[in-house]
Design a protein around this nucleic acid. Structure first.
Ligand SMILES: NC(=O)c1ccc[n+]([C@@H]2O[C@H](COP(=O)([O-])OP(=O)(O)OC[C@H]3O[C@@H](n4cnc5c(N)ncnc54)[C@H](O)[C@@H]3O)[C@@H](O)[C@H]2O)c1
Ligand SMILES: NC(=O)c1ccc[n+]([C@@H]2O[C@H](COP(=O)([O-])OP(=O)(O)OC[C@H]3O[C@@H](n4cnc5c(N)ncnc54)[C@H](O)[C@@H]3O)[C@@H](O)[C@H]2O)c1
Lengths: 218, 218
DNA sequence: CGGCCCATGTGAATACTTTCACAATAAAGA
DNA sequence: TCTTTATTGTGAAAGTATTCACATGGGCCG
């Protein structure tokens, strides 16, 4: 019997990220009609250890069969439930510039159930224009439109200088989950979940490793 | 005396990422003409603990003055050296679609010393066209052009299905650092540094937290 | 239907990261 | 010059995450 709805299971960030990896791997395996997969093979594909895979899954229950492995479709379905991706999420994009447009054009999000229903900007030339089937709304109508459209997540693609201001408005409108692309440290109340993508940080990470890598064996 | 060039100092991924945060914070402080900053204040700005800040910096030397704090400009300069961003890095973008174009248009990378010198595609309609002052090159000329232009990092913005193939070519051309945007697990030799940005994973993380958050106090 | 095989599930051990707590010490003011 | 004050730098402690290692038990073959 799966031991769900227990006390305060504290799941680590790394475990959640790995669940995303497992989910992606299982989706591929399902397409290939593979019926079961062992922790060993799943670990190999994602460059992890078999124990790591089993431990991660064990936080949520016992999904495998000893001697056999995990049933691909069933495990995929269970992870979808855990991640909350067995449903549709309505999303609003704020800022339809370079990165905002690229994200709106990206059809994969929609396939995964992340539906961009609204896009906002404050540029009069953009408001009212058609972006991949979506009419750009005026940022001033945001609070009302977010509520009317049952938006639960917001993606922020505005200049860093206005990002905190916009976040405050988004929070005031009752949104609890924000994905931010502006390279700035944003402040939100504790009940609002904020994740930031920072591409410069990744480039700096590469810069660090290239700069500090062990010199090639002499 | 700073204890650099010691044995096998193993710096953790989290420490390196925080160095990026400190660097960004120090750049802002420098603009505001602030001369010194304490670990306490730096920690407050980046939502960390003062001990964390001091410990991170202590891996690389002693940069502060007891009773006073750290000299802003000097510390910024030292972190730039540690991260390897006190210089210019030549970058090639592969794939000039939605996301590739957005990144090429982004002027901040250039300001930080990450210079996109070449862009590649395999679409005949795109090859030869002008993208923000850069002529799109034919992917078939990649190995030669990467070498001729002293490219040291490659950003990958091609469809997932061709990503492994392109990575193999990039590795064969001698590149040791790759930033990948395709949502797929790429395999590279151990001396090649690969980082991946996965936006779906961040959305799934938000989905997880919204789904599993403690219910509002009753 | 009995026994062997194999991979799970999980406590315990290990490894890694963060925080604590305080001695050391530079600056500033008396 | 001496005292006070503030903040660093760092071992040691506490807290997390990962890996080990093996008992457990379902599947399958004979
Ligand atoms: N383009 C990239 O590749 C890239 C990479 C990393 C980070 N970023 C970050 O993403 C953000 C957007 O970058 P971009 O290149 O798309 O910039 P951009 O200037 O092309 O787009 C920003 C958009 O936000 C809109 N905007 C400005 N103020 C607004 C407001 N108050 N309300 C609503 N909309 C407003 C602008 O009209 C514009 O359409 C920036 O913070 C940038 O630093 C971009
Ligand atoms: N657009 C987004 O917002 C977004 C978000 C997350 C991830 N991604 C990922 O980034 C990658 C690119 O996405 P996109 O939306 O820009 O796709 P896109 O189709 O707009 O662009 C891909 C580009 O790569 C080029 N290309 C294809 N095969 C090539 C080859 N063999 N050699 C050189 N160039 C080749 C295409 O001609 C095209 O210009 C994809 O892997 C996608 O999953 C995109």
């Amino acid at each position: 019997m799966p031991k769900k709805s227990e006390g305060k299971r504290k799941i680590s960030e790394s475990t959640i990220k790995r669940l995303s990896l497992y989910y992606r791997a299982l989706s591929l395996l399902e397409k290939e009609n593979q019926e079961t997969i062992s922790s060993k093979e799943l670990a190999r594909r994602e460059k992890l250890t078999p124990a790591q895979v089993r431990k991660d899954l064990s936080f949520f229950g016992s999904f495998g069969t000893r001697g056999l492995g995990y049933p691909v479709s069933e495990l995929k379905q269970r992870i979808a439930e855990i991640l909350g991706v067995n449903r549709v999420w309505n999303i609003a994009m704020i800022g339809v510039g370079n990165i905002g447009s690229a994200l709106v054009s990206y059809k994969e999000f929609q396939k995964q159930g992340f539906i961009i229903k609204l896009v906002f900007d404050n540029d009069q030339r953009k408001i009212g224009s058609n972006h991949k089937g979506l009419i750009v709304s005026d940022i001033r109508d945001m609070p009302r439109l977010l509520r009317e459209n049952h938006i639960e997540m917001v993606v922020l693609a505005v200049p860093a200088i206005v990002a905190q201001y916009i976040v405050d408005e988004v929070v005031a409108a009752g949104i609890k989950a924000i994905l931010n692309f502006a390279p700035i440290n944003l402040h939100v109340p504790p009940d609002v979940y904020l994740r930031s993508e920072n591409m410069s940080m990744e480039l700096e990470y590469l810069s660090f490793t290239l700069t500090n890598r062990r010199p090639p064996a002499e």
